[in-house]
C-alpha cells in the first residue's frame, strides 16, 4: 500500500513542479509588453551610451582647431598592442626656439583593445575615450585613423 502512495505521490509532486514552472513562463507570455528587446538601429536617437563607455580613442579639438597633444609619446609607450603611433616634427616657435610637436597621431582602431591605459597615462589629457561604437567599415585601411585634425596645432599654455 505504501508503494502505491509513493507512486502517486511522485506523480503529484512531479506534476506540481511542472505546473509551477509553467506558471513562471506563463506570467511572462501573457505580459508581452514587458519585453526586454532593444530595437537597436531604430533607437539610435534615444540610445545614449554611458559617459565612461570606451568606444574609441579620440582627440578633442577646440573651436580654433587646437588640441592638447604635445607629442610626448607616453600613450604609445603605454599601449599594450601598438595601436598608437606618434609621428612628431620639429617646429620653430615664435620666439625662435625649436620645439617638438605632433605631426600625426595615428590610431589603429583595428588593433585597439580599449583598455584605457593610454588615456590614463596622457599627461595633458589630450586623448579621451569616445562613445561611438559603430565602427564597421568596408575597408580595413579606414580603421587606421589620424586623431589630430589637419592643420591643427597645440593649444596655448600646454606644458610638456
Amino acid at each position: 500500500m505504501n508503494a502505491i502512495f509513493e507512486y502517486f505521490g511522485t506523480i503529484f509532486k512531479g506534476v506540481k513542479t511542472l505546473l509551477t514552472g509553467m506558471k513562471i513562463t506563463g506570467k511572462y507570455v501573457f505580459t508581452p509588453w514587458k519585453h526586454v528587446t532593444q530595437q537597436y538601429p531604430e533607437n539610435r536617437e534615444t540610445l545614449k551610451m554611458f559617459d565612461r563607455y570606451r568606444g574609441e580613442v579620440i582627440m578633442p579639438h577646440n573651436e580654433n582647431n587646437e588640441h592638447l597633444c604635445t607629442g610626448c609619446g607616453i600613450c604609445e609607450l603605454n599601449c599594450p598592442n601598438g595601436s598608437i603611433e606618434i609621428i612628431s616634427k620639429m617646429v620653430v616657435s615664435e620666439d625662435g626656439k625649436k620645439k617638438r610637436a605632433i605631426d600625426q597621431h595615428i590610431y589603429h582602431l583595428g588593433m585597439c583593445t580599449f583598455c584605457n591605459l593610454c588615456v590614463k597615462a596622457c599627461p595633458t589629457g589630450a586623448i579621451v575615450m569616445g562613445q561611438n561604437f559603430e565602427h564597421a567599415v568596408w575597408d580595413r585601411s579606414k580603421l587606421t585613423k589620424v586623431l589630430n585634425q589637419p592643420g591643427s596645432k597645440i593649444a596655448q599654455g600646454v606644458k610638456e
Binding site: T25, Y28, V29, P32, H35, V36
Partner: peptide
Amino acid sequence: KVCAAFQQRLGPT
C-alpha cells in the same frame, strides 16, 4: 512569436 513572448523578446520584426 510565441517563443519570443515566453522569453520576453519580440521575435521576428
